[in-house]
Computed example of a mutant assay.
Amino acid sequence: MNTSAGDGSPERAEYRRSAGSPRGEARRRELLERVTDDLMVNGLVDFSLRRAARAAGTTHKVLLYYFDGADDLLRQAVPGLRERHIGNAFATAAQGLGGGTLADRVRAMWQHLGEEDAGLRRVLDQLIGLAMYDPVRYAEPGREVSQQYLPALLSICPEDWSDRRRHEVAEMILATLRGFLVERVTSGDTAGVDAGFEALIRALEREEAAGR
């Protein structure tokens, strides 16, 4: 009887079916949580399936039953990492100002970004750098993490704006804040970043005033 776990084998197919059961899904989530813990401590550099297996307390073959390789595991772990440590706090910071201006809400969001867990910031910073160095492997998870900001950014734009305008402004805020985060890490020029952020705030104030 062939008991190999290679792609397409009877054993692998059977395990794949069991992995979709409630028990199998619980096991998949448990493994993903352990790998996410490892990313928080050791970052993305030199991430591999064998390293993930050690962190999860299992073998790389077991991980292959639940995930389609290291890249699939990484794509699932990185967004989950941000959700687990930030949750809805980012959106809450924006919505907490209620009747505040768009600029007020962006200022609150920027403050929240500065208070993020240091381990999380390191992983996200590494992800941006690795996406430029190796876009084939890292561009998609990097894009997914960035896109997690968009719903919160869209929600703080004035409700009477058109969908197109809200998306344009939200994308501008996202790209600008992301650039500031990279600049803050790579150059250490916090004064320059602060000055740039104030320029963004003035631009948002003008944008909102133009729509009145």
Rank of each mutant, 00 (worst) to 15 (best):
A139D: 10
I86M: 14
P141G: 09
R143G: 03
A108I: 02
E115P: 06
G99M: 07
A139V: 03
L177V: 15
G87M: 05
L130A: 08
E159K: 13
Q126H: 02
W161Q: 03
R164T: 07
F90V: 08
V185T: 15
E144T: 15
N88M: 06
G98V: 09
L153Y: 01
L177G: 05
L97Y: 04
M109Y: 00
R82G: 04
A139K: 03
G100Y: 09
A131F: 00
D160W: 02
A91E: 14
F180K: 04
R137P: 00
E183W: 08
R166A: 14
D125E: 05
R84M: 03
L120Y: 10
Q148I: 00
I86C: 13
L153G: 06
A108L: 01
E168W: 10
E171N: 13
V169G: 06
A175I: 01
E140G: 11
M172R: 05
P135L: 06
R143M: 08
R105C: 10
R178C: 11
A152Q: 03
L120D: 14
W110D: 06
G142A: 13
L120F: 10
G114V: 07
V123G: 01
F90T: 09
P141F: 06
V106I: 05
R178Y: 09
V182R: 12
F180I: 10
R164N: 05
L124F: 06
S162M: 05
G99A: 14
N88D: 13
V136H: 11
E83P: 00
A152N: 03
E140W: 07
D104S: 07
R84W: 04
P141S: 09
A93I: 01
R84V: 01
P141V: 02
T92C: 07
A103E: 12
Y138H: 11
E144K: 05
A131V: 01
V145K: 02
D125T: 13
D117K: 01
G179Y: 06
R143N: 06
Q148V: 00
G96P: 01
L127F: 00
V182Y: 13
Q147D: 14
H112Q: 14
R84P: 01
M109K: 13
Q111T: 10
G80P: 07
N88W: 11
D163L: 12
S162Y: 11
F180R: 02
L181W: 06
P79G: 10
E183Q: 15
P151K: 08
L102K: 03
I173A: 06
P141A: 09
V169N: 07
E168G: 09
